[in-house]
């Protein structure tokens, strides 16, 4: 079956257009990560203590607790520390919160870490997975869309090149050298 050039071009275009925002974020944050030492990574730490009658048990109670104390992020870890106190850790792109329950005094201690602007941006890059509040689920969906789009517009781009400029020596040189470099890297990693 021969796919018309116009259709491939549309797929290439729409795959890219649907993911521009996330792609630009990835390019900017990758730059921040590569040049890690050029940016501020100072973390601000805040601790506050609040009264709490009892530790929530049901998902509904936990949601109410998170809303009441305006805890940002999604649950990443929960358990009991060395002192026998229950704790929960939440993480967002901009920072994290650890809530430790002091059941003897009916208090909860919040240890809040706030990242620098550069780290908060990198934090967006590192979000993944379908868990947490609705915005995290939507973002995970966007990530899947970006992943499929990356694959789609790389493949459709190569197909379009074959249809448009397959006699271009420069294009062949770039494509073949990219292929050799990429797969030689993988082979060296696998067999060195």
């Amino acid at each position: 079956m021969k796919i018309p050039y116009v259709l491939i071009k549309k797929i290439h275009l729409y795959a890219c257009l649907s993911t521009v925002a996330v792609l630009v974020m990835f390019i900017v944050t990758s730059y921040l990560m590569i040049h890690h030492n050029s940016f501020d990574h100072e973390m601000a730490k805040v601790e506050k203590t609040e009264g709490v009658n009892e530790i929530p048990t049901t998902p509904h109670e936990w949601r109410a607790f998170e809303n009441q104390y305006q805890i940002k992020g999604r649950l990443t870890r929960e358990g009991v520390n060395q002192d026998g106190e229950s704790f929960r850790e939440y993480a967002s792109a901009a920072g994290s919160t650890r809530a430790t329950f002091k059941s003897e005094t009916n208090k909860v201690v919040f240890a809040i870490n706030l990242k620098s602007k550069a780290d908060a941006l990198i934090g967006i890059h590192r979000q993944r997975g379908y868990s947490g509040a609705w915005q995290y689920t939507l973002y995970a969906l966007l990530l899947d869309l970006v992943a499929v789009s990356l694959i789609t517009f790389a493949i459709t781009g190569v197909i379009m090149w074959f249809k448009l400029l397959k006699n271009s020596k420069t294009a062949w040189a770039i494509f073949v050298s990219g292929f050799i470099y990429f797969f030689l890297t993988i082979i060296l990693l696998l067999y060195w």
Partner: peptide, 21 residues
């Protein structure tokens, strides 16, 4: 086109990796 051809393998790897992550 030249820019795209240079990055196509990198994009494929990142696409696959993003799904895995």
């Amino acid at each position: 086109l030249y820019c795209g051809l240079f990055t196509c393998f990198y994009l494929l790897a990142f696409g696959v990796s993003s799904i895995i992550l």
